[in-house]
Computed example of a mutant assay.
Amino acid sequence: MINGSKRIAQPIRWAMVGGGSASQIGYIHRSAALRDQNFELVAGAFDIDAERGRSFGVQLGVSAERCYPDYLSLFEQEAQRPDGIQAVSVATPNGTHFAITQAALEAGLHVVCEKPLCFTLEQAEILRHLAKARNRIVGVTYGYAGHQLIEQARAMIAADELGEIRLVHMQFAHGFHSAPVEARNAATQWRVDPRLAGPSYVLGDVGTHPLYLSEVMLPQLRIKRLMCSRQSFVKSRAPLEDNAYTLMEYEGGAMGMVWSSAVNAGSMHGQKIRVIGSRASLEWWDERPNQLSFEIQGQPAQILERGMGYLHPDALLDDRIGGGHPEGLFEAWSNLYYRFALAMDASDRDDQQTLSTLRYPDIEAGVKGVRWVERCVASADQGAIWVDY
């Protein structure tokens, strides 16, 4: 089923903090948010260099007077306009996420924030309290969680097609930082600087992505304890890791493993998740996002294709084009931004029924990601010991 009508009644007046002309992630945010016309980009503080940010904003079609030098000016002056912004996306280095998101919530704005939401669980709890107190939506951009085959996997697991879940193997292990590229790439430098990146590099930067996919697929699993070992193979990155292995024990006895890495030389992206049950297994790889592998013990392996009528109805709701045509990152992000828009609109109308039916990476997902990174670091820094989750 091709869903070509993904619209809310009135576009949300939207701004960006960060995401300037040299920002890859900023382009992805805009492409996703604007695709279904549910957001209208009307303002922004796009760059730490105010003039460069203003020039870029004008290129995007934003009025020069609404291209601000910093996020505080953006929030303060937009609040004085009758047509001021209703939501903001935060696409800045990790070390700024908490302050910007906190200020946005205090200004009464909905927020879409890059992960990690912040550095510490204490900060995450502050943001969660603020979001609930102000009745504001916070979305976190675990982008591939918006892909249809993640919904298919969730439905198949819920229908007991795999049997008892025993193992969950996850990885996000690329090779683009297998050498000290930050020495000549300013866009990478902040990721390996503890002052800007926080207590981890790859655990927070890539490891939380497949972890959230597992939470979508397997909402019944709860982490009981974990053990993490992390390494800095490019020595100048220490104390931040560029590789980490995390072993997790779930309540009920299932086991999980996450490989987080930026030094998997030769790998393009390497984000995969494999769920292993007592009768069958599922595997999804983001470099081949339109195929879901389903392997029943003793039978030939099956490949389920995106967009086909044999899939679960929930996996067909987000189709944008017919089966056979590839959909990937931009479509998955667009699906998330559509859900963000639905949630923001419902929140503004106090439509609790709609809010109760929506699933997207929300403030709770952001808090869980921060908790996981914090516990991984605690385990690794004590010699890779088991720690309670």
Rank of each mutant, 00 (worst) to 15 (best):
G204R: 10
G204L: 03
G204P: 08
D205M: 10
D205F: 08
D205W: 00
V206R: 08
V206M: 09
V206G: 14
V206T: 14
V206N: 14
G207R: 05
G207E: 08
G207W: 00
G207H: 09
G207C: 04
T208Q: 06
T208F: 00
T208E: 02
T208H: 00
T208Y: 00
T208S: 10
H209G: 08
H209P: 08
P210C: 09
P210H: 05
P210T: 11
P210N: 07
P210W: 03
L211E: 03
L211P: 01
L211T: 01
L211Y: 10
L211K: 02
L211A: 06
L211S: 05
Y212N: 11
Y212I: 13
Y212W: 12
L213N: 03
L213H: 08
L213Y: 02
L213E: 02
L213M: 05
S214F: 04
S214V: 07
S214C: 11
S214Y: 02
S214H: 05
E215R: 14
E215H: 03
E215Q: 13
E215V: 00
V216L: 07
V216I: 13
V216N: 02
V216M: 10
M217P: 01
M217R: 01
M217S: 08
M217W: 01
L218Q: 03
L218V: 06
L218R: 00
L218F: 02
P219M: 05
P219Y: 01
P219S: 07
Q220A: 14
Q220F: 06
Q220I: 05
Q220C: 06
Q220N: 06
L221G: 12
L221F: 03
R222W: 03
R222A: 11
R222Y: 00
R222F: 00
R222V: 12
I223F: 01
K224Q: 12
K224M: 06
K224F: 02
K224G: 08
K224H: 10
K224T: 00
R225F: 04
R225Q: 14
R225A: 11
R225D: 09
R225P: 01
L226H: 10
L226T: 05
L226S: 04
L226I: 04
M227V: 06
M227L: 10
C228M: 04
C228S: 12
C228N: 07
C228L: 06
C228W: 00
S229R: 15
S229W: 14
S229H: 14
S229V: 14
R230E: 06
R230M: 08
R230K: 11
R230D: 10
R230H: 09
Q231N: 15
Q231R: 15
S232P: 07
S232K: 13
F233R: 13
F233D: 11
F233G: 06
F233Q: 13
F233P: 13
F233H: 15
V234D: 15
V234I: 15
V234S: 13
V234K: 10
V234E: 13
K235L: 12
K235D: 13
K235T: 11
S236D: 15
S236T: 11
R237T: 06
R237C: 03
A238N: 03
A238F: 09
A238M: 00
P239E: 04
P239Y: 03
P239C: 08
L240F: 04
E241F: 01
E241C: 05
E241D: 14
E241W: 01
E241S: 10
E241V: 04
E241R: 02
